[in-house]
Nucleic acid binder design. Structure first.
Length: 565
DNA sequence: GGAACTAGCGCG
DNA sequence: AAAGCGCGCTAGTTCC
């Protein structure tokens, strides 16, 4: 291990043995740091924050193999109920910082390590880095399931490397294809920044039906009043609500909303702002979601509409491996609960078909809403009605989510398979429960408290499943990343220079979204990359669930665009 | 003129 | 045909 941090005005490195004892410490300049990282390939780097240190190394053309991201691991260990002695980690409040929210306007300059003023950041000082590393080692050592926490910290740190690398590489984006889609759907781009052709025509038609040439279509409150005036008594202007009414205004209005959404979220302005030199480079925020899922900041990376997937196009001579896991969450639930019956239904491609085959429900559609209902906490409607059938068919799996919900309703904390714990009930939540339970609690207080308890129960019910699915995905991602490394580089004539100096010479991850990933690969490495993606999925399953036999089949294709056929 | 809010809809 | 989890983003609105 080599820890790196600031030291006065400069940078210093400390070489550590396996126990974390400092063997050597020396000042180092930034060029020498990237030189060291380039040559010392087997080192695990210990640093405050991957988002702070790694981009400049990538800009210098250097990948690192392994790291420990102290900021991310701090958050895990601070909150995990597996840690028996969390006091020291919890006391180190300087590490309680969320990810830097970089607007992403420009990649950080080479070796620019100064924080922008006022931006929260973890301590980068080497002495403090070493102190935090020691605290974290002690915390893990005190844990009941130390292997799980170690695995989680390693996977989380590997994910942080992937996030920085994917931003450096970017997602190959075909601007012309995107513009073709915009013109197909929206019509010609307005010259002076006005409304596109098709939207203009739809707006005129809608206003004619509304009998008001000035009607506002973009303000929900005003639009609702206009609809009421012509007898459409909708309660909101949402798509689901509007669909219930039969009136000639509805169809053009729904189409207008669809187009407006595309224009506003991913129109020409989005292209100008977010796609440069044939790459979309969003900021990924590992563990940005409370469950451990990634978030993103800027560009809406996690909300790219399916319609635009065909604008995701590989470089010349390169192609994609596009893969996603079918029904990840129920599979993970089977693994966590060792529910052999659910695991049996999960063998093969389609878990929902497996549930139907087991006789628990009659149709695939029923299996799906029932399973989602079980994991989200549905109580009413078709979904709520079907959940009891799953309870009979898969009692172990259902007990796990039901127990998580019960714990949450009572104000307790639940944890994922590898030990990420959910936040405790807020002060306001507990106050509401006390208020309702007390002598003076009114019916309204009790109602409010019951609702809050239910909300928290559904949150904790879903937390264990969503969070463990995020852990499986991190393990998959990390395995893909390290196995791609072994593919070796391609010749100078075959590189993808727009992917950045550190990523251009071989197959690399280009996109990740909860349960799917895209590898951008030279055509001649595509088959090998696809095999790696499959092997990594199997490996992730073994890593989390050991000998328990649960399948994680992939939908995988090798194709130059990300469009789903 | 900006912060904080809601509505609505995209993704899993 | 829609209630049940987690997000980010934009525009409109409200409030200071």
């Amino acid at each position: 291990m080599v820890a790196v941090g600031t030291d006065g005005d400069g940078i210093a490195c400390a070489q550590l043995d396996a126990e974390g004892t400092v063997l050597r410490r020396e000042s180092i300049d930034r060029v020498a740091l990237s030189g060291l990282a380039r040559t010392a390939v087997d080192v695990r780097w210990v640093w405050s924050d991957t988002a702070h240190w790694y981009p400049s190394l990538l800009d210098a053309g250097v990948r690192v193999r392994r790291c420990r991201d102290l900021r991310l691991c701090h958050a895990i260990l601070r909150d995990s109920t597996l840690v028996a002695e969390p006091a020291a980690v919890r006391a180190a409040r300087a590490w309680d910082v969320a990810a830097e929210v970089d607007s992403g306007a420009a990649p950080p300059a080479l070796f620019a390590i100064a924080e922008s003023a006022g931006e929260a950041a973890p301590p980068h000082d080497l002495d403090e880095v070493l102190a935090e590393l020691a605290r974290q080692r002690d915390a893990v050592a005190s844990a009941a399931e130390r292997g799980r926490l170690e695995l989680l910290c390693a996977a989380e740190s590997a994910g942080a490397l992937v996030a920085a690398e994917m931003r450096a590489a970017g997602l190959p984006w075909d601007v012309a294809a995107h513009e073709r889609i915009l013109e197909d759907v929206l019509g010609r781009r307005p010259a002076g920044g006005g409304m596109p052709e098709h939207m203009t025509a739809l707006a005129a038609e809608i206003r004619r039906h509304l009998g008001d040439a000035q009607a506002s279509l973009d303000s929900p409150a005003k639009l609702l009043r206009s609809l009421h005036r012509i007898g459409v008594q909708a309660e909101s202007t949402s798509r689901w609500e509007l669909r219930r009414f039969e009136h000639p205004v509805i169809a053009p209005l729904l189409e207008y909303k669809r187009q407006s959404r595309l224009l506003v979220a991913n129109g020409w302005a989005w292209l100008d702002e977010w796609v440069h030199d044939g790459r979309f480079r969003p900021v990924y925020v590992p563990a940005g979601v409370v469950t451990g899922r990634w978030a993103s900041s800027g560009g809406g990376a996690l909300q790219i509409p399916r319609l635009l997937r065909e604008a995701v196009r590989a470089d010349d001579g390169w192609t994609f491996v596009v893969a996603d896991v079918a029904q990840l969450e129920p599979r993970v639930l089977a693994g966590m609960s060792s529910d052999a019956a659910l695991a049996r239904a999960a063998f093969g491609r389609d878990l929902y078909a497996g549930i139907v085959d087991s006789g628990a429900v009659a149709t695939r559609a029923e299996a799906k809403v029932a399973m989602l209902g079980a994991m989200y906490g549905a109580t009413t409607g078709e979904s709520g009605r079907l959940v009891p059938r799953l309870r009979r068919a898969y009692p172990r799996a259902m007990k796990l989510v039901d127990d998580a919900a019960r714990t949450g309703e009572l104000g307790g904390v639940v944890s994922t398979w590898l030990g990420r714990s959910c936040p405790p009930a807020s002060e306001g939540w507990q106050r509401a429960q006390r208020q309702a339970a007390g002598e003076t609690g009114s019916a309204m207080d009790r109602d409010r408290a019951r609702r809050a308890a239910g909300d928290r129960g559904r949150f904790t019910r879903n937390f264990v499943v969503q969070g463990t699915a995020a852990e499986w995905a991190l393990a998959w991602l990390g395995e893909v990343r390290s196995r791609l490394e072994s593919l070796g580089s391609v010749g100078a004539g075959e590189t993808a220079p727009r992917s950045g100096p550190a990523m251009a010479d071989r197959a690399h991850l280009a996109f990740f979204l909860h349960d799917e990933l895209i590898v951008h690969t030279p055509v001649r490495q595509a088959d090998a990359a696809a095999a790696i993606v499959r092997e990594a999925a199997a490996s992730a399953g073994r890593l989390l669930f050991g000998g328990f036999a649960i399948d994680f089949p992939l939908d995988l294709k090798i194709a130059p665009t990300a469009a789903k056929e």
